[in-house]
Amino acid sequence: MAGEDLTSSELAAPPLLPLAVEELEAGLDDLEAALTAGAVGLGLDRWFWGEGVSLLALARLARQRDGGDHPVVVAHIDPHTRRHPVLEHVNNLAPGAALAELLRTREHPARMELLVAGLDWYASAPEATRAPNGALEHWPGGVWADTVYMAGEFLLRAGEVLRREDLVAQARDQWLAHAEVLQDDASGLFAHGTHQGERIPCHWGRANAWIALAGADLVAAGADTTGEIAERLARQLTALASHQPEHGVWDVLVDGQPETRGVLETSAAAGIGAAALRFAALDPAGRTAIRAMGELAVRGALAYVEGEHLTRVSAGTVLQLIPFGYSVIRDDRPQPWGQGLGLEAIAAWRETADDPGAVTRPSRGTPGDTARHETTREQELT
């Protein structure tokens, strides 16, 4: 196409091979410890979206392990109960999901007061504008996929903790309102967002991760009363599987745009993989292809853990109006959402470890399929 700028694509580093199943399972504890330490090292002090992603993932890991509270989550949330954060954007709702998880274990008036403050902002703040179909806007005039995770995970968990079906219903309705605006009818993929009421057809990887994670949680919670979320989510994940490269990690735009080809984005793969594993576990017999995609995405993403950080994670990304815009977002430093989505991938792998629908991992206590995994993570695909 005339005018394409392939500079970023041509300079992209080659992809790594995915971790072998047995290599991942043997190193899962070390990966979790490393990514947790890296998240803490980046600082989880703000009441904002990157911190919220990491804290919710840590809360999931603690629930999966022993049902208790994760000490890192407690340490970083409780100071905000003594001095409430300023709430001025939908991204400020994200840590509320982990806050709600703390309220599952015991009553805590100060934590409850902070939870209610978030609900009040969502319901009545002048910044919480809505699109004509009711979708909570990320910015006035713009509906973004990010919002379904940042607000939706909070609403779902707050509704469960408070036993308020209206909040769970709002989480569901927000997911569907966003899907109505952002899901491409032909492909099933989700666009990043809208600009001045128009959907921009850039199918950003992390947008698809946010949508998929929130959707899988709503289906698992029984909130999908009509089955529409499951139907839309299945179409999305099936489409993502059809575009998945052999190494498991999609480009920053997941549909093979020439200008972003080879510009990989690992946090999206980690989040999509986690969602796919959870969604497939709800119907093991009917979602084997989605399961296989999820496993490959997790193995592919976690191959990029270096030291304490998930690498090749794109920085915070505002809506871009053309594909090339996504090819120049920096990905050369650690990000809290990358740590969190890497931990989400680990949590989902643990949660579904004994899923009878698993199609590639070995049975517990038996050797892996080593013939398929003769290479190590240091090798690169050419």
Rank of each mutant, 00 (worst) to 15 (best):
R46H: 04
D224P: 05
A145D: 06
A97N: 06
T317D: 00
A39D: 05
M293P: 01
T376M: 05
R278C: 01
A12Q: 05
Q339D: 01
G50Y: 00
V305R: 08
P258G: 02
D30A: 15
V328K: 07
G357A: 03
G67N: 11
T317C: 00
Y122H: 14
E265R: 08
A239K: 08
V161N: 08
A212Y: 03
A2P: 12
R60I: 00
Q64D: 10
S8Y: 04
R312Q: 10
R364K: 07
P323K: 11
G193E: 06
A110H: 15
A274K: 01
E127F: 05
E198Y: 03
I77A: 03
G193H: 04
A128G: 05
V219E: 03
A59F: 05
V263H: 07
G152M: 12
P362L: 06
E32M: 12
N133W: 14
A281P: 03
E380M: 12
G248R: 13
T370D: 13
A37Q: 14
N91L: 07
T266L: 00
E137A: 12
T376Y: 09
A301S: 12
T105I: 05
A275G: 09
L114N: 10
A2I: 06
M293N: 11
W349I: 00
L264V: 14
Y122D: 06
T129S: 15
P85W: 08
V313R: 02
T317F: 00
A241W: 06
W47Y: 08
E32T: 13
R372P: 01
V116Q: 12
G368V: 04
R361P: 01
A59L: 03
A62W: 11
D283L: 01
F279S: 03
D69M: 11
E153N: 10
R60T: 02
G222K: 11
L189H: 05
M112C: 06
M150Q: 10
A353E: 12
L11R: 15
H84A: 15
R330T: 06
T288E: 14
Q196T: 07
T382F: 08
A100I: 08
R172H: 13
A179M: 14
T360W: 10
D217K: 09
P15T: 05
E10R: 15
D283M: 01
T288H: 04
P258H: 09
V298N: 01
A128V: 08
G256N: 11
D146R: 04
E137W: 09
V40G: 00
R157K: 13
E25W: 14
A274P: 08
T266N: 03
D120E: 15
E137Y: 07
E374S: 08
A348D: 09
L240Q: 09
L156P: 03
D255L: 05
Q244T: 14
G227F: 09
A37N: 11
E137Q: 15
G248Y: 13
G134L: 14
E380L: 14
